[in-house]
Nucleic acid binder design. Structure first.
Length: 844
RNA sequence: GGGCGCAUAGCUCAGUUGGCUAGAGCACUGCCCUUACAAGGCAGGAGUCGGGGGUUCGAGUCCCUCUGCGCCCACCA
């Protein structure tokens, strides 16, 4: 018997065991394992440009629970970690942290020192710096942030193999991301196109459909009079965007609308600008909206894009990439009227146009305020505009029914936890209305590995992109020179130009299985050992982005799904059921909670939430977890305190066999639950058995175990106690890795986390045998409580009547019962129904 | 407008093919220093299972319907 402390404690065990696990490498993945021996996890790489919050603790714990279970089941668990550090969030953080902004027109400054490191004053005007300088600061800051993340995840006890750490901006990620893209290009799955695109005017980048969200904003209907060229009455239209009047290319009504049917084919002149535009018909026009006839502008919204494309209308763009009205009007637009809005922001332009319309008398109604949904970039502050620009796309079924159907079918090949999350996937894929826009006009990202030839006039030829060889990856087309050219031909007629854009962050993170498993990297055969992976854990709000994008990439590259299971986690809510947010100042830092309650306790709280359900933040629940961990140490001390059992000692007593039979049922249930990713159910069953074991079984057999009735009787109890303890320690190990390891270490040389997950003992005990004796014990306790005496007080006489089955059970537990309840005289007799009379001894 | 989920004790939630008197923890109250544990243990009160209807010998559980809350999606006139 090794070293059981006199006073077991949870204090200090976390540092000790975290260090030991790292030293022993117990979470190392065996890279020689073959696919069938592996359980592979596609860990979500967290965005590092922010602080870690309880949501991270919550969902990453869920994954770790499954990982630990699978490891104990004998699987080689591939459990990598990654940082999603490329992309806009990091850029924004760098701007705010150093007080700079990226301006690609600035020259590079060697040894540049940023004006601030953390919290520039609010009135500080960001210093424009070159792209390379900006990227250096990005690299510097993510390194700091990643260090903090790693410390937290280690403390949380994630059984990650840290040797497989990756970052989405690191060289391997860039190479794999570019390689996969080139394959997509080669197969025709990726293409570039000049087309109307959702555009954020502040970040000045294109935005994908998946990053767009509706926000309810106030707006107003303005009723405008268009003048018929054939001399009829004015045509009245309602619009919320009068500032786009100069971009108007047509009016549109529903083909069946009798009010307007006669006008189709005729033309009107726009107010203010006097442009002649046709009246056209299209089914998307809604007769019940506004006056039933709408103006089509290039481009006011995505419907305008559809009309423009399907009705083959001209283009009159007036909004620039910076969100301001272009300096020069489109052809045919009245120059004087247009001059009043040139250079204004969209908002200013609206006021100006309304003023002009009032003066001209062409504003015949409104503004009438309304609330309506407006499209925003999810991180943006001003409404999205639609501008025409050349962008790269990957096909995703948005323009191709067959592909869409195939991708929906792929979704069906994944097992979803919980199952109803699949609806969100189906819903999203079926509602796609365009291909996946992957290029971004940003800086800190994986460069799009493409150059374009310049013709003799210096015009870009986008139709014949120059691609790098795979062996040369990763490349940066802004500094690297394409094959067949020399550096001095850059941006010269007859030479080449590099694509200035980077990939959207999802375009790289959609390859997380490939990056983690080093797909097609030199000398690596890891990928074949782990792919397709077993589990993709992630939050449900990024089904439409990360999950779907990963399926798309895998579908194209491998013709299959990237993983067999998707486990979706829920949100953390305030105790008052609102989504936790930083702004409300109610965020507690995870480290602080680890310190106050212990990591196991925090993990316990997370483990209590069923997969996919939202959970309330609850320190009370953590206290329960703390109690459980504490109890585990104490009961371990008690059981192990009897010392080693003699060789060959077996469980002979029916009472003990009954307890083990109950335990077997719990093992089976917990195992099945865990196999189905339901860590919460597994814990709940284990935990409730555990408390029953401590409160009832242990109390019942305690005396016998002390050898009050001889060594042979004691041996049965001791063997049973140790068998149960071993099982319980192992079953609690995923949830309480620290306390379980601590208690396990008192009688084992190796870690509980690589111990074998328990199997039922397949004994022949009767699980119901203990019901009647424990009922008597419970009644005795109640009687003592009611009479306000100590539980140690003696029972002078206890008369129990019971049916034959229960009577037999009581007989077999008689000695244990008498001792545990301090019964002086126990009389058992047959009765039709259970009855029990208790007579306390005269007060002591 | 379409889709999905939730509603059980004051609070957080179990309740998996329909089946004894609906459970647990927290909180609350009372008792007990019982040699594993007082950062503990034992015990207690507390619920018209959101409303209504139906199927059934029997419904928290299945069907219909209504209400409330939440999430996802949707062409901004």
């Amino acid at each position: 018997m090794a070293n059981i402390p006199d006073r077991p404690t949870l204090d200090g065990i976390e540092d000790r065991w975290a260090t030991q696990w790292e030293t022993d490498g117990i979470y190392r993945f065996d890279a020689s394992a073959v696919r069938s021996e592996v359980f592979a996890i596609d860990t979500p790489p967290p965005t590092v440009s922010g602080s870690l919050h309880m949501g991270h603790v919550f969902s990453y714990t869920h994954t770790d629970l499954v990982a630990r279970f699978q490891r104990m089941r004998g699987k080689q668990v591939f459990y990598p970690m990654g940082w999603d550090d490329n992309g806009l969030p990091t850029e924004r953080r760098v701007q705010n942290y150093y007080g700079v902004r990226c301006d690609p027109s600035q020259p590079y400054q060697a040894g540049f020192e940023p004006p601030f490191r953390g919290d520039p004053p609010k009135d500080h005007e960001p210093v424009p710096i070159s792209r390379p300088n900006f990227l250096e600061l990005c690299d510097e800051l993510v390194e700091i942030d990643e260090q903090i993340f790693e410390e937290l995840f280690r403390r949380l006890g994630l059984s990650v193999d840290w040797t497989y750490l990756y970052a989405t901006i690191d060289e391997r990620s860039r190479r794999i991301s570019q390689r996969a893209f080139l394959r997509n290009v080669a197969r025709g799955e990726a293409y570039s196109q000049d087309a109307p695109t959702l555009w954020d005017v502040d970040f000045q980048t294109a935005v994908a459909q998946a990053e767009m969200e509706d926000r309810d904003k106030p707006g107003a209907y303005h009723k405008l009079a268009f003048h018929r060229t054939d001399g009829g009455d004015d045509v009245l239209i309602d619009t919320t965007r009068p500032e786009l009047l100069a971009a108007c290319v047509a009016l549109v009504a529903h083909p069946d609308d009798t009010r307007y049917r006669a006008m189709f084919g005729h033309t009107v002149r726009t107010p203010l600008y006097g442009v002649e535009v046709p009246i056209v018909a299209h089914e998307l026009a809604q007769p019940d909206k506004g006056t039933g006839i709408a103006m089509i502008c290039t481009f006011g919204d995505t419907t305008d894009v559809v009309w423009w494309r399907e009705l083959d209308l001209p283009t009159r763009a007036i909004v620039g990439r910076n969100g301001r009205i272009l300096a020069d009007p489109p052809d045919g637009v009245d120059v004087d009227a247009y001059g009043a809005i040139a250079g204004l922001t969209v908002r200013q332009a609206q006021r100006q146009v309304v003023e002009q319309l009032r003066e001209s008398g062409e504003l015949v109604g409104g503004p009438d305020p309304i609330q309506h949904p407006v499209k925003f970039y999810e991180r943006g502050e001003r409404p999205l505009e639609i501008v025409a620009s050349r962008q790269w796309y990957i096909r995703n079924g948005g323009r191709d029914t067959d592909l869409r159907d195939a991708l929906v079918k792929r979704g069906g090949e994944i097992t979803w936890h919980p199952p109803h999350m699949q609806h969100r996937y189906d819903n999203w894929v079926e509602g796609l209305n365009g291909d996946w826009l992957i290029s971004r006009q940003r800086f800190f990202g994986v460069p799009i590995p493409v150059w374009y030839p310049l013709d003799d006039q210096g015009e870009l030829d986008h139709d014949r992109p120059v691609l790098p060889a795979e062996d040369d990856l990763p490349i940066d087309p802004s500094t690297d020179v394409p094959p067949g050219y020399t550096a001095d031909q850059r941006n010269r007629p007859g030479g080449f130009a590099g694509d200035p854009d980077v990939f959207d962050t999802w375009a790289t993170s959609s390859l997380s299985p490939h990056i983690a498993a080093r797909w097609e990297e030199e000398g690596a055969d890891l990928f074949e050992r782990v792919f397709p992976m077993d589990m993709r854990p992630q939050a449900h709000d990024i089904i439409r982005t990360w999950l779907f994008a990963t399926v798309v990439r895998s579908h194209f590259e491998h013709g299959g799904v990237p993983w067999s299971n998707a486990a979706l986690s829920g949100w953390i809510l305030d105790p008052d059921r609102k989504k936790m947010s930083k702004s409300k100042g109610n965020v507690v830092t995870p480290m602080d909670l680890f310190d106050r309650h212990g990591t196991d306790a925090v993990r316990y709280w997370a483990a209590c939430a069923r997969p996919g359900t939202d959970a309330a933040f609850s320190e009370d629940q953590m206290k329960v977890g703390r109690k459980l961990a504490n109890k585990l140490l104490n009961v371990s001390k008690f059981v192990l305190g009897f010392g080693d059992v003699a060789d060959g000692a077996t469980v002979t007593d029916a009472v003990d066999r009954s307890m083990l039979a109950r335990l077997d049922a719990v093992i089976t249930e917990a195992t099945n639950a865990f196999e189905g990713f339901d860590y919460a159910r597994a814990l709940e069953r284990t935990e409730s058995f555990f408390w029953w074991f401590c409160d009832d079984y242990v109390e019942l057999v305690k005396g016998r175990a002390y050898a009050t009735r001889g060594d042979e009787a004691a041996a049965s109890a001791r063997v049973a106690l140790r068998t149960a303890l071993s099982t319980i320690q192992r079953m609690l190990a995923p949830t309480l890795p620290y306390a379980s390891e601590e208690a396990w270490s008192w009688w084992h040389d190796t870690s509980v986390h690589v111990a074998e997950w328990p199997h039922p003992t397949s004994g022949d005990g009767d699980p119901k045998l203990l019901d009647a004796p424990l009922e008597v014990l419970s009644r005795v306790r109640r009687t003592k409580t009611e009479h306000k005496v100590s539980q140690r007080a003696e029972v002078a006489r206890c008369v129990v009547g019971a049916p034959s089955d229960a009577l037999a059970a009581l007989e077999s537990a008689r000695e244990d019962l008498v001792e545990a309840a301090s019964i002086l005289q126990l009389e058992l007799g047959p009765a039709d129904e259970f009855q029990c009379e208790i007579e306390l001894a005269a007060s002591t």
